[in-house]
Design a protein around this nucleic acid. Structure first.
Lengths: 97, 97
DNA sequence: ACGATAGGCAAGTCGGCACTTGCCTATCAA
DNA sequence: TTGATAGGCAAGTGCCGACTTGCCTATCGT
């Protein structure tokens, strides 16, 4: 769990995606693709972004909801809060890898 | 800079090392090696740990001081604080990758 | 001076990760 | 129903990161 969060945050593109969702929640895959390209100059395939979103989702940092043929993505920073509390805030003992 | 911190935190062994230093600051390479082995069951070469410490140091999470033939390591969590403030605390804009 | 201890450097192996490519499914509009 | 849009699955490629191995330097004790 801890490992998933830190691994997810290890990639700069995924951090950009979190930035995007922090600025505007509930974006679809194509919206995120477009904004990564136009605003950050990243030339990525839709598949690449999709895989990044999957990583973020399995880390719990992104939550998704399906509506018709759209899938919207929402940011959830709580996993990040928990995981850094290990060294910040108070000393969280941490269980697992 | 941001990238270095997150990359450094992406490895579970390095997080253990930070735990060790959080519990007791100013340990030498061999002390860290020993405690990783005896307390966490990690069977790592001295070189492996040395390389991990180098990564942590260049990320600014660990500071070192030489004394004679010893090199002591101290934890510094401030880089972590800055880097997560991007999504927690207040919205830090972040410059660079 | 000599051996032991603490650490550094460099090359090599190996697995995992980011990314692409190609094709397939599902929903909506006409 | 046909075409377009939104997304998913799976295999393949290339690179980077973690770890080892072998050897070298520096400091300390005696």
């Amino acid at each position: 769990m801890t490992d998933d969060v830190f691994k997810a945050l290890a990639d700069p593109t995924r951090r950009r995606i979190l930035d995007e969702l922090a600025e505007r929640d509930g974006q679809s895959l194509f919206e995120i693709c477009t904004r990564l390209t136009t605003r950050h100059g990243l030339g990525l395939t839709r598949q690449a972004v999709s895989q990044h979103l999957a990583v973020l989702e399995s880390a719990g940092l992104v939550r998704t909801r399906r509506e018709g043929r759209y899938k919207f993505h929402d940011l959830d920073i709580r996993p990040l809060e928990r995981v850094v509390a290990r060294w910040l805030g108070h000393d969280e003992p941490e269980t697992g890898a």
